[in-house]
């Protein structure tokens, strides 16, 4: 009767980010959508505006200027420091994920532009072991932060992650501290950092760089939270309220600045960057905010103008 038993799927973290096939069923309203149509609409349901999960490649296409993305730190690859094995070896999981996604690990880092304005970007990828943060994600995000600080350009991190990667144990936990420490340095240098929270952003990722932006933008309907819903349910022994841990919930409770539709993201980012960093406006003459960031910023704009 083996054929009768339903084969257990692998963990939900490894579900395909984008469903295959010519026709796609909307996860929210059930509408059957022609795949080409969905692609044209940036994987947003034409009927209910549900935002499908997409990979880092799509986010790079949607959010940044066409062909502006130049990857760096692409040669950093994961190892298996604990020789970790559960039902499967971590080293095998890595190989499978690399094969499936064509990525080395769960984040892609690069220089990019938005309406011509230079930024440094780190884009996470949920399709790589649930976007989990291990040593490579921690290191690449740290390098992106350092690069933004050194080049004096704004930093944008797109999060899509279930949290820290269990298969690297305490080492992955330390990536929270590592990235947060780097962000303290970026903040002291007076460089703006925008975090874009996409579906899902939970666990250690939320408890570090996702919640440390100067501006937090969420995609509509994205799951954003710290503890997993199953764990919370078990702990409190009751059902969770509707809409719990959604972007809308987090906005209501004051932890994101705005929810922005995928189609509007590029334009919104451009407006933010212009006001925060790239606008040619007179600066307050008497800005003694202690770290002299205003002065550094004006210097930097001059250099950027030369670049243009």
């Amino acid at each position: 009767m083996d054929w009768f038993k339903r084969k257990k799927g692998i963990s939900s973290g490894e579900k395909k980010a984008i469903p295959d096939g010519l026709w796609v069923k909307c996860n929210k309203c059930g509408e059957i959508i022609y795949r080409r149509e969905l692609q044209k609409r940036m994987y947003v349901c034409p009927k209910c505006e549900y935002h499908f999960r997409v990979t880092s490649k799509e986010y790079i296409d949607y959010y940044f200027d066409a062909n502006s993305f130049e990857e760096f730190a692409q040669n950093i690859k994961p190892v298996d420091p604990l020789k970790f094995k559960d039902k499967k070896k971590y080293s095998d999981r890595l190989k499978e994920a690399q094969k499936k996604t064509g990525l080395n690990d769960a984040v892609v880092t690069g220089d990019a532009r938005i309406n011509g304005m230079p930024i440094v970007a780190a884009v996470m990828d949920f399709s790589f072991i649930g976007g989990s943060m291990g040593s490579v994600v921690g290191e690449k995000i740290s390098r992106a932060i350092d690069r933004a600080r050194e080049k004096r350009v704004p930093l944008i991190i797109v999060t899509a992650s279930g949290g820290a990667r269990m298969m690297e144990g305490a080492i992955s936990l330390m990536q929270l501290a590592k990235t947060s420490a780097k962000l303290a340095q970026l903040s002291e240098a007076g460089i703006p950092y925008i975090a874009i929270l996409t579906d899902p952003t939970t666990g250690g990722t939320t408890a570090s760089f996702a919640m440390l932006g100067d501006i937090h933008i969420a995609e509509p309907g994205a799951l954003i939270g710290f503890a997993g819903q199953r764990v919370i349910k078990q702990t409190i022994g009751q059902d969770l309220p509707e809409g719990f841990q959604t972007a809308e919930f987090v906005l209501e409770h004051g932890f994101v600045d705005m929810i922005v539709h995928r189609h509007e993201m590029h334009r919104t980012l451009a407006r933010l960057l212009k006001i925060l960093w790239y606008a040619e406006m007179p600066l307050p003459a008497n800005s003694n905010n202690g770290n002299g960031s205003a002065e550094k910023a004006s210097l930097d704009k001059a250099t950027i103008n030369k670049l243009k």
Partner: peptide
């Protein structure tokens, strides 16, 4: 603590800020 109130009041934000 994994609770509803903890999420509402920003458990992740509180921890993240301490790290920084």
């Amino acid at each position: 603590y994994p609770g509803i109130g903890a999420e509402e009041r920003g458990q992740a934000e509180a921890i993240a800020k301490n790290l920084r």
